[in-house]
Simulated scan of single mutants.
Amino acid sequence: MPEPAINTGTYKLFPSPRNAHRTVFLHEVFVPHPYALVDLPSFRFKGKYSLFAAYRLADGKHGQLVTFELEAEARRFEREFSPD
């Protein structure tokens, strides 16, 4: 049975089944590419992270939301990630 959606007020989120942590962490990066492969383990982050399919409520944009425990890792992901 799929997990229910999470509504944060900003996003409607659907957790990735591959998440080790199913938490919405404080530091977020919205990836406006709903079908891009986001290979988070390849970044070798030190802190916790999670990935969600996302629907941004403000403008109806579909994408993915990556959340991070550590702000520095969110900034690194923003710099280094490029959609395939």
Rank of each mutant, 00 (worst) to 15 (best):
M1E: 12
P2Y: 10
E3I: 00
P4W: 05
P4H: 06
A5L: 11
I6S: 01
I6W: 04
G9P: 13
T10A: 12
Y11Q: 11
Y11F: 15
K12Y: 10
K12I: 15
L13K: 02
F14W: 13
F14E: 13
P15I: 08
P15M: 08
P15T: 09
R18V: 03
R18L: 07
N19T: 04
A20Y: 10
A20I: 12
R22Q: 06
R22Y: 05
T23W: 02
T23V: 12
T23D: 12
V24P: 03
F25N: 00
F25M: 00
L26T: 03
L26E: 07
H27F: 07
V29S: 08
F30D: 02
F30Y: 13
H33K: 07
P34N: 03
P34R: 04
Y35S: 08
Y35Q: 09
Y35F: 06
A36W: 07
L37N: 14
L37R: 15
L37H: 13
V38D: 11
D39N: 13
L40S: 03
L40K: 08
S42C: 03
F43Q: 00
F43L: 00
F43R: 00
K46H: 07
G47Q: 12
K48R: 12
Y49F: 06
Y49T: 03
Y49K: 01
L51R: 13
L51Q: 14
F52I: 03
R56A: 12
L57S: 12
A58H: 02
D59V: 09
K61C: 06
K61P: 03
H62R: 07
G63D: 01
G63A: 03
Q64G: 13
L65T: 06
V66Q: 05
T67Y: 14
T67N: 14
F68A: 05
L70A: 06
E71T: 01
A72G: 08
A72L: 08
R76A: 14
F77N: 02
F77L: 02
E78T: 15
E78M: 15
R79K: 08
R79M: 01
F81G: 05
S82Q: 12
S82H: 14
D84W: 12
